[in-house]
Design a protein around this nucleic acid. Structure first.
Lengths: 244, 244
DNA sequence: GGGTGTGAAGCTATTCACAGCC
DNA sequence: GGCTGTGAATAGCTTCACACCC
């Protein structure tokens, strides 16, 4: 299903570039981009995979493997040219184009997102802030006028918005999501702590602020070492679970 | 390297319980917990793995495998008792205890975190809000008085804080991190868009608000079909032309 | 019959280690 | 000599499919 026929060598390269990049690699490309931006700012012109990996917080074998999916952008014995690699990764992710974004739900989180410099600097342009509370309409946040929920469809169409960000309370999220999709949005980033349903063809990603904290708690709990406080009952359960 | 010697059966059980739950499973436990909370609220007493998986947005084989790492908490032919399973998962993650948390950096994001109901309802108790800006000291956010950065160590020690949340600008994050660690914090959740260095024994997780957006952009770029080997320029034109 | 719990198979991702090029 | 790019090996995760128990 992901395979194409094999007989067009010129296209073959494209095939690899467009379908061959693993998800795990895609998720790390932004890290490399950030590291490269820092190096560029410091005036560094060339980096080795070791140095770049260190700046990005991954190991160098992984970095080289990741970059190899995009092409051969390094020079053996030398390393990678910072600006060139930066451009190539940007292009791969699609950050060389402009992405108009709408944010729905202008509470504290929505405001934080609207003000976040990391968006603007990467080609994401916030073109609409929507909030259901009519008393907020007209308020200016991050240089934009907050608009009422009724204007959602209009904003999406006017700016050809492809990416929507949901920062509403959980209860409103699915309704907002449906309206965004109906208006033409095909990628959604959800910050509301609820599971959203989207039709095929629409990409959905989520950020749950409390999940990371819960993962930390899990590990923290295990740090206080200790042949830890098992009740007799739990011990029995464990022994059973172990079997062998 | 993860293997221990084999001769102490009693410890063996502990070994599995504490080291045997895969990271990928740990990361999903919060999802199951949320789904169970919703079911409980609706008065559902029992669920099958199919139903619970559906509510949590995963497939049922994965759910059953995940739960099997915790123990045998279901009944064949019947399913899982909602409240019982909920309790078991909570205990596994460590949410049956109280986790005092300090948030550093009370901008919009810090405020959003301080107000986030999802923390309080899961055993996370925000006990300190710290901001470097002296004009903010004394301000009340989410029912707590914002304190000056000088008080960081005192708050951590007074409440025996194990988990710290960093929501400062990137430039301040490493310094704040060092101080948290020095004061005794052993788990850190970082929202600042920068790579933090922590000593061994300290857990670090990060949430980068712009990474998810970049991943969406990557996929969005590839939706506009096309057998494309395009220059960035051409791609931009195409994106524009495609529009709807 | 119905649905869990789990070995086994399949797949994806990471790491190793070195050939190949500068 | 140094460092990239990449097959091969390993580890980890997901899915299958069915034995087993209610």
């Amino acid at each position: 299903m992901t395979r194409r026929t094999r007989h067009v060598p010129a296209e073959h390269a494209t095939d690899i570039a467009s379908r061959g990049v693993p998800e795990a690699t895609v998720a790390r490309l932004p890290l490399y981009l950030r590291a490269l931006a820092m190096l560029a700012e410091r005036g560094v012109a060339t980096v080795s995979s070791d140095e770049l990996a260190e700046s990005a917080g991954v190991n160098s074998a992984k970095l080289r493997k990741d970059l190899s999916y995009l092409g051969s952008y390094g020079t053996r014995g030398v390393g990678y040219e910072v600006e060139y690699l930066r451009h190539q990764i940007s292009r791969e992710i699609g950050l060389t184009q402009d992405w108009p974004v709408v944010i729905v739900g202008i509470g504290n989180l929505g405001q934080a997102l609207a003000n976040y410099a990391g968006f603007a600097s990467r080609g994401f342009r916030v073109v609409g802030l929507i909030d259901a509370d009519p008393t907020r309409s007209g308020e200016v946040v991050a240089g934009l006028v907050v608009r009422h929920a009724d204007d959602l469809e209009q904003v999406v169409r006017e700016y050809r918005v492809a990416i929507g960000v949901i920062a509403t309370p959980a209860g409103a999220a699915q309704h907002v999501c449906d309206r965004l999709v109906a208006a033409g949005v095909t990628s959604i980033l959800n910050f509301a702590p609820t599971l959203l349903q989207v039709p095929d063809g629409v990409d959905l990603r989520k950020v749950d602020l409390s999940i990371e904290l819960q993962i930390l708690a899990y590990h923290e709990q295990r740090k206080n070492g200790a042949p830890l406080a098992l009740t007799a009952e739990q011990a029995a359960e464990l022994a059973e679970a172990v079997g062998a």
